[in-house]
Every structure is written in structure tokens, then in C-alpha cells.
Design a protein around this nucleic acid. Structure first.
Length: 484
RNA sequence: GGGCCUGUAGCUCAGUUGGCAGAGCAGGGGACUUUUAAUCCCAAGGUCGUGAGUUCGAUUCUCACCGGGCCCA
């Protein structure tokens, strides 16, 4: 099939025609035509000429008449290709057009007998010859592997793929609008770092030749953003990609998008209030409202959201009041009873966090702020103002999805250094996810980080929720794949 | 990392209890000036993911490998 189309290209060149010209003067997009002539009845001629352009999706040839579905970025419009209008020469040239080709056409806006808005073309030119055939017109492209590897094909033939990518763009745009409206400054911090901090995760390692040092792709934007708050930018955010060298599954891609924001003089309660404003606004921009379906179940993101302590949720699920002051053996037994295998080196905080993930997370459908996480697993969060074993941290869940993680930031440099040292100890004992000691970050805190509330949103997961997709691969245009 | 499923025509999918490989769409030829997945007629289209094993014979059974999907850790 490719060979046959290559022959058409060569035949055109032999006639002195260019199968890949440089530009086309379009006067109307498909959407414009539909908007302007929405009310037109069947069998009308408007006398109005337009020039449209796009990809030929489908041709229905009826002898001296051809109906063509032309797709541009804003929709589709039907071409009415008539021998009488186009002339014998033009019509015969049109018969070389294949599904998949890009063409530009001029003609009169009209409606067919059945009322389909169309362009009766009086002239056309090939804009780009497609050498490969399109996937099946009715079922589209189903094979998931090819949909991900060749997303361009998915986008051509699967409307839902276009919808998800478009909604994603709307989510990014609305997030920016929301933070900018509150005087947050969008900044860019290093992706390539000599130390990967700000989260508990394994980084990708690379090498800088000129400096002859190993470098890491960032696993979070947190530490640099807080350095900027030290620098006096009281409200900053970064909406960008981070990288974690971990497995790939329905909710994990090695590169993913986060929005981190930091607000001076605020604590985690203020950040919860902020989330209750921003999440509904973004949902409304994406779905038209705050109530919608996710995987067959209704989600209602209308604020306010419940705010419940993690220990209370775990206690409720365990059927008894669980505390961080329990002896390790007792916690270990509790985990065992609930089928969680605890590992040596896990302290009470880690065990209770694991229990939360095993028993509670999957039941969190309505939006909820889970608050007050153990200090042990939150090395960058400020200790709770009323309980030295907890931190002022929350995670926002909805529809079983963790959407955000936030805390009152730890701004005491002495405490921060102590926490880093505890992490270093864990790392020495084999915890590969433990946080490295970042001396420069502690130094920055020593110059004074004001009281600050910080926030991280998992943008891919938010898009999954708002586009009703079950896997992250559906909301990332080019998900990470093993090379073919 | 473990379990299950999967890879057949350009695409979407059947199928072979182990014996010449099937359809629809796309593509080719023909008819058709009002289609909407157009319709009708004709012809063509295959290294059945790769490699080994069992067998008279493997696309089918077994194993390994290469991809992919789902679930679990």
C-alpha cells in the first residue's frame, strides 16, 4: 500500500506538482463553518466561499460525486466533491486522494439533501501525501501498545484520546490561572541536580562529562522552591516534570508532573483552605462542574472536605485505638493480623503509615484531608504544634486517588539537620528511599525560612480523576515504554 | 519480583480437538450525483511475535526468549 502511494508521489513530481508544498491560506476552520452556519436547513447554498484544510479521514465515492470527511484540529467538516463543480480534470486529480492525506480546498458552504453542512469544492490541493494507511475507521486503533507507542495515530482516530489531552491542557492552564490569581510566581528550578532530595524515592543517575560528576534527575521540586522563599519570593510555584526510578504501573510513570506551591506565613490549615478553592475550580474548568463520574461512581468535589487525623482513621479501621506510643512488637502483631508484612527497621510511624495504606486508602472515595502524619516518615514537615511525634502534614484523597501532599514546612534548621541525620542512618541501614543530607539546604534555612505552607499536587492523577481514566498511561501523551 | 491473559492480513477480530488460514473494514478493478461505518459485483492480500522441542506433520501442544495488558507485592 505504501509502495502504491509512493508511486502517486512520483507521478505528481513527474507532472511538476509538489506533494509536500509549504503552506496553505486557510480562511475557516471546521468549527468556524459549523458555528457560522449552524442553523442552515437541508438543501441550501450560501454563496459563501471558504478555504478549509485538514486530513482526509474517510471518502465515500459515488461515481461522479465523492463525500469526504475532513478533519482539522477543531473538528470535522464534510466536503462535497462534485464532478460538475470541480471539472473533469480536477475530479480525476481528486481520485488520487487517499484517506490520511492532508488537503486544502476552496468552495461554497452548502447543505446536502440530508442537511449535512458541507463545502462544495471548486478547487483543492494536496498538502501532504500520507504513505501509510489509517487504522480501521470504525473500531479505530485498539491495541494499547500501539496507542501508546504511536500516539499520533491514536489522536487521529480516537476521539477520546484527543479529549483527554485537551482536558489535560485545560487543567494545566486552570492550575496556573488559579495560582497566578493569588500572586504566586511561577519559577523553574534545576532538573539536573548533584543531589536528589525533596522526597523519599530513588533517582535516575546520569553523568556530567565536563565536571566529571554523577548527577541526578530531580525527584521533587521542593527544596529549591523553599530556597526561593528564603530568598524572599513569598509565593512561588512550579508546574513541571519530576523523575523517579521506580516501577511502572497503572498510577506510576517514571516521569510525571507535579505542581508544588509554597506560601509564606501560611500553615497546612491555610493550604487546606486553598485546596478547597483550587480543586473545585480546576474540576469545573475540566468537567463543567464539581460533581462527575469516575469509573462508574459519582465523585463530588464540592467543598468543604472532611479533615480527619490519620491515627483516627487507622484506629477506626483496626477496631481499636492505635497509637505511636505502642511498643514495636504490638504494632508488628497488629500489622501481621491485617496481612501487612513489616520489615526490620520500620519504626512505629512507618508501621502505622503502612497500615493506613493497606486498610484505609482504598476506602477514601469522598474528598478528605488525611491530617497529622507521623514525624518518622515526614522529614521535611514541621513537627505538630501539639504532638511531638506528629507533623503538620496532610494528604488529599478523592476517589481512592492521592491527589496532594502538603505540610507546614519545617523551617527550624537545627531540627532539619537532625531529621536529615536520621534519614542518613536509615539509608546506611539499607533504605534506598531515605533522604540524603543536603547541607546547602540546611544552610538556606539558617538564613531564615518564614513560616510557610507547602503543597504538592499529583497533576497526572488529578487529570485521571477529571477525565475518568484508570491508568496514568492514558493521561500522559507519550508514556514510558520499553524500546521496541 | 509473582500470578493470570495476550501477540493471526495495513486495522478490528474469528479460527484450527495437530492435517491447504477466515471475516469485516482499509487497499486494487468495476457500477453509482446526496452519502453519513454508503451500497452492490469481482479479484487480491499471511514468516499465525522470535527460536527451539515433541510429532509423519506445529499457527495450534511444550519450553525459552521478545513485546504488551490486567491483578498482586
Amino acid at each position: 500500500m505504501t509502495a502504491r502511494r509512493l508511486e502517486k508521489v512520483e507521478a505528481m513530481r513527474a507532472r511538476g506538482e509538489e506533494p509536500y508544498p509549504t503552506r496553505f491560506e486557510r480562511t475557516a476552520r471546521s468549527l468556524d463553518v459549523h458555528n457560522e452556519f449552524a442553523e442552515l436547513e437541508a438543501g441550501q447554498n450560501t454563496g459563501k466561499d471558504v478555504a478549509v484544510a485538514g486530513r482526509v479521514l474517510n471518502l465515500r465515492r459515488l461515481g461522479k460525486l465523492i463525500f469526504v470527511v475532513l478533519q482539522d484540529a477543531w473538528g470535522t467538516i464534510q466536503l462535497f466533491v462534485e464532478r460538475n463543480t470541480l471539472g473533469d480534470e480536477g475530479f480525476e486529480a481528486f481520485e488520487a486522494v487517499d484517506a490520511g492525506d492532508w488537503i486544502g480546498c476552496r468552495g461554497e458552504v452548502m447543505t446536502t439533501r440530508r442537511g449535512e453542512l458541507s463545502i462544495r469544492i471548486s478547487g483543492f490541493e494536496l498538502l501532504s501525501k500520507a504513505l501509510r494507511p489509517l487504522p480501521e475507521k470504525w473500531h479505530g486503533l485498539q491495541d494499547k501498545e500501539r496507542r501508546y507507542r504511536q500516539r499520533y495515530l491514536d489522536l487521529i482516530v480516537n476521539e477520546d484520546a484527543r479529549r483527554v489531552a485537551t482536558v489535560r491542557a485545560g487543567v494545566l492552564s486552570e492550575l496556573r490561572r488559579q495560582f497566578e490569581a493569588r500572586d504566586f510566581l511561577e519559577v523553574e528550578t534545576p532538573m539536573l541536580q548533584s543531589m536528589a532530595g525533596g522526597a523519599l524515592a530513588r533517582p535516575f543517575v546520569t553523568h556530567h562529562n565536563a565536571l566529571d560528576i554523577d548527577m541526578y534527575l530531580r525527584i521533587a521540586t521542593e527544596l529549591h522552591l523553599k530556597r526561593l522563599v528564603v530568598g524572599g519570593f513569598e509565593r512561588v510555584f512550579e508546574l513541571s516534570r519530576v523523575f523517579r526510578n521506580e516501577g511502572i504501573d497503572a498510577i506510576h510513570n517514571p516521569e510525571f508532573t507535579t505542581l508544588e506551591a509554597y506560601q509564606a506565613l501560611a500553615d497546612y490549615n491555610d493550604i487546606m483552605d486553598l485546596m478547597e478553592e483550587i480543586i473545585p475550580a480546576v474540576a469545573a474548568a475540566a468537567t463543567g462542574g464539581t460533581v462527575f463520574e469516575y469509573q462508574g461512581r459519582v465523585v463530588d468535589l464540592t467543598p468543604p472536605y472532611r479533615r480527619v487525623a490519620l491515627l483516627d482513621l487507622v484506629s477506626e479501621a483496626a477496631g481499636e485505638p492505635v497509637g505511636l506510643d505502642w511498643p514495636p512488637d504490638r504494632l508488628h502483631d497488629l500489622l501481621g493480623r491485617h496481612g501487612v508484612e513489616s520489615q526490620p527497621g520500620w519504626g512505629p510511624g512507618k508501621m502505622i503509615t503502612e497500615l493506613f495504606e493497606a486498610l484505609v486508602e482504598s476506602s477514601l472515595w469522598d474528598p478528605i484531608f488525611v491530617i497529622d502524619f507521623p514525624k518518622e516518615t515526614s522529614p521535611l514537615a514541621r513537627v505538630h504544634r501539639r504532638d511531638p511525634n506528629l507533623t503538620e502534614r496532610f494528604e488529599l484523597f478523592a476517589a481512592n486517588i492521592e491527589l496532594a501532599n502538603a505540610f507546614t514546612e519545617l523551617n527550624d534548621p537545627v531540627d532539619q539537620r537532625r531529621r536529615f541525620e536520621q534519614q542518613a542512618k536509615a539509608k546506611a541501614e539499607g533504605d534506598e528511599d531515605a533522604h540524603p543530607i543536603d547541607d546547602d539546604y540546611v544552610k538556606a534555612l539558617e538564613y531564615g525560612l518564614p513560616p510557610t505552607g507547602g503543597l504538592g499536587i499529583g497533576v497526572d492523577r488529578l487529570v485521571m480523576l477529571l477525565t475518568d481514566q484508570a491508568t496514568i498511561r492514558e493521561v500522559v501523551l507519550f508514556p514510558t515504554m520499553r524500546p521496541e
